[in-house]
Write a protein that binds this DNA or RNA. Structure first.
Length: 376
RNA sequence: GGUGGGGUGACCGAGUGGCUAAUGGUAGCAGACUGUAAAUCUGCCGGGCUCUGCCCUACGUAGGUUCGAAUCCUACCCCCACCA
């Protein structure tokens, strides 16, 4: 039920298929983020047509509203959201990082002051497992402690060791809840900040507790330089079991996908395509386009001439610009659709190239073209 | 024709003697965003230059008072309201 089949490798890059209770995911894959159980602004059919095979939901946000009880009562997260495909729920660990001003960490768990209504809510590894189990996504992420990218050794050590202790508690509770059924699997998360030694110790601790149906790498793209992220991926890649899918959490931008894939990553997620889409920034084959830019005022060209998404095959740049200038919500949706498709298509292309052995050269050329434009 | 009110940068609109190239807002331009407290946030926004500063032009028009005026005075032009 949680099988991962590896079809081909090229260097560290891998092409595989992940089988989950609600469907299969061809990897490398990009997973759009649907924090509140919706990929922001998009209809599930649009997400599917963009090529998404799995989406992410968030424990913290869905616990605050509508609450896991409602979701369970209405048939689980897939039916509730009408996505009806593979889903992964993040644990709220990232909110430990992003809501730093609104939370307090103890060994027991994390007390958040809800950003919705100010009430205090405590999440523990056990309660997170209960929430994720109630929602019923295919993959439940362990509750972890994410530290900032510039965190000094002691802080990263503390977060990493706590993440390991919490992993034991997560697994214990998740095992009790699942009671032999195979409708949801639990994935652990490697932490350790930017410190190689801690990253290695984190992974070792996780592998000692295996086997796992997947392993996530968290706490990257949180303020550390890119080469550091690459170094850590290179450090972990060879140690990770080949038959286990690797999920790089919260990444990324287009080049991050290719750099990650080249270092053995199978699954990605990131808010960037939808957030940037809403903010009017589009990735295209001819460079990044600011959709509000004056240059687009009367352009009848598609946003990206090489793109096959619903937006690019239907609308002109001038119309998209007009929608943004006029603050029509359709504009936010159309650029989001494009950006999501752009990343998914990039992952699809990478997969094809890995399968036919051309990944290294294709990726090199793609990145060169991208960076030649001065893109970050 | 009379009386009253008013004319400020692309637009709206503050400002009633020096700290005013002129508060705000809008429009415009550019940028940021990486497991979503984000349809958000930031910067620029009279012109020019030898650009951490300097010069020019500017608050209806023309003149005046003053060391100094968008701000005070005079005339004129225009707009609005009411009265004839």
């Amino acid at each position: 039920m949680f099988e991962f089949q590896l079809h081909a490798t090229q260097g560290q890059a891998r092409a595989g298929t992940l089988t989950l209770p609600h469907g299969t995911v061809n990897t490398p894959a990009f997973m759009p983020v649907g924090t509140h159980g919706a990929v922001r602004g998009l209809h599930p059919d649009e997400v599917r047509r963009a090529g998404a095979e799995i989406i992410l939901g968030n424990t913290y946000h869905l616990h605050l509203r509508p609450g896991e009880a409602v979701i369970r009562e209405l048939g689980g997260i897939q039916r509730f959201t009408h996505w009806n495909g593979p889903m992964l729920t993040d644990s709220g660990g990232f909110q430990v990082f992003s809501l730093e001003a609104l939370r307090k960490i103890t060994e027991t768990g994390v007390t958040f002051q809800s950003h919705v209504d100010g009430t205090y809510r405590t999440l523990t590894p056990e309660s997170v497992m209960e929430i994720e189990w109630a929602m019923g996504a295919d993959i439940a992420m362990a509750f972890d402690h994410v530290v900032p990218g510039q965190a000094p050794f002691e802080v990263a050590l503390d977060g990493m060791e706590r993440t390991v202790r919490w992993l034991d508690r997560c697994r214990q509770r998740h095992t009790e809840l699942s009671d032999g059924t195979a409708r949801q699997t639990l994935w652990p998360i490697v932490q350790g900040g930017i410190h190689d030694d801690l990253r290695r110790r984190s992974l070792d601790a996780i592998l000692e507790r295996g086997p796992w149906t997947g392993v996530a790498i968290g706490g990257l793209s949180v303020g550390e330089p890119k080469p550091v992220m690459h170094r850590i991926l290179e450090l972990l890649g060879p140690v990770l079991p080949e038959a286990t899918p690797r999920y790089l959490m919260g990444v990324g931008f287009p080049p991050d996908l290719l750099e990650g894939i080249a270092r053995g990553v199978d699954l990605f997620d990131c808010v960037a395509p939808t957030r940037n889409g809403r903010h009017g920034s589009a990735w295209t084959s001819v460079g990044r386009v600011n959709i509000r830019g004056a240059a687009l005022r009367s352009s009848n060209e598609p946003l990206d001439p090489e793109c096959d998404c619903e937006t690019c095959t239907t609308f002109s740049r001038a119309y998209l610009r007009h929608l943004f200038v006029a603050e029509e919500m359709l504009g936010l949706r159309l650029v989001s659709i494009h950006n999501v498709r752009f990343l998914i298509r990039l992952a699809e292309q990478a997969r094809r190239c890995i399968l036919d052995g051309s990944f290294a050269s294709w990726s090199r050329e793609w990145l060169q073209r991208y960076h030649t434009r001065g893109e970050p």
